[in-house]
Amino acid sequence: MTAITIARDPMAVGEPTAPRRGVGIALLGVRRSFGPREVLRGIDLAVEAGQFVAVVGPSGCGKSTLLRLLNGIDAPDGGRIAFERPTAARIMFQEARLLPWARVADNVAVGLGPRRKEPGAPARVLEALAAVGLSGREADWPAALSGGQRQRVALARALVSEPGFLALDEPFGALDALTRIGMQSLLERVWREQGFTAVLVTHDVSEALALADRVLLIEEGRIALDLPVDLPRPRRRGSVALAALEERILRILLRQDRDQPDYMI
């Protein structure tokens, strides 16, 4: 018992020590076109189990498409996507996408799928809500929650089934700056506790650098940069090391994309 408690301690320093729930993912020559437009032109990528990968790139570069392929919402036209072992794959969107007519607990239970009716389900829902700091809100309507709280419910819904892989599509893009920082730390904490593999698509380079083990820059359907971020966690915002990496990524982005300055710098 004690050993498990220590292993799950979110304050533990170093790499995620949680149970290795994450799955490794391998992509080989993955392509996807919409009509004549080739959005992904052969992506080769190996994501380690439990790794946190951030994907940045200009609008329309194919990063969201990549995420939808990984999550199985969309299928590639060519190439292969292989998961190390079968796992629940979950996705979080920029909008919380909660069912407005279902109370918070029922929304989280959606994440359990058919296992929602099992006897242990309510306890798991409460546990997931506690993990995102929303204990006591289980009987609320989504309309009664703030934007950040709704995203927390969406996160609980995504994690209640203990997925091996979580895809995040600009999950905090619609939140105000302070709430966003809070959500980033929350995401980092649950990721370190639970050890799932995470792929985060974001416009926000500093968010990518704050959270990810590795930042991918996608341009014109190809991986243009694969940058490891070997900095201790939790990372201090505005540190020199982060600023240097951010500078490097932004320089590439801005060179390519001078007329579309929609990045948060």
Binding site: N71, G72, I73, R90, I91, F93, E95, R97, L99, A102, V110, G111, G113, P114, R157
Partner: peptide, 19 residues
């Protein structure tokens, strides 16, 4: 978007309609 979410969580058919 809700329909896409529900389908991504494996809902379909009668359950998708009802919920």
């Amino acid at each position: 978007q809700l329909l896409e979410m529900a389908r991504s969580y494996g809902m379909g058919g009668l359950e998708l309609f009802r919920r």
